[in-house]
């Protein structure tokens, strides 16, 4: 998840709710450490002013996962 620091009002609530301790409080606003975040969504669900959103962090890797899937059935179309 990503914090929109313009929208974040700095209430500090999400910091203690993150099960991965991924949220830092910097300059009185939240910042999510992208390496620690597991996209569980707890912070986004909790933020009173809806300042947290899902940003796809690794678009290239997502594509790669599909390309490399050994169980993919080439004949199946979506």
């Amino acid at each position: 998840m990503v914090v929109d620091r313009e929208e974040c009002v700095g209430c500090g609530a999400c910091v203690n709710l993150c099960p991965r301790l991924a949220i830092r409080f910097i300059d009185n606003k939240s910042y999510i450490d992208q390496v620690s975040c597991i996209e569980c969504g707890t912070c986004r669900e909790s933020c009173g002013v809806e300042a947290i959103y899902a940003g796809c962090r690794f678009p290239d890797i997502v594509l790669l996962n599909f390309a490399n899937n050994p169980y993919a059935d080439d004949t199946t179309t979506i």
């Binding site: 009002v9 700095g10 209430c11 500090g12 609530a13 910091v15 409080f25 910097i26 009185n28 009173g48």
Partner: peptide, 12 residues
């Protein structure tokens, strides 16, 4: 404290 400015109140 996690805050930089302790007296600042942004919590409802």
């Amino acid at each position: 404290d996690i805050k930089k400015d302790i007296p600042l109140i942004n919590r409802s």
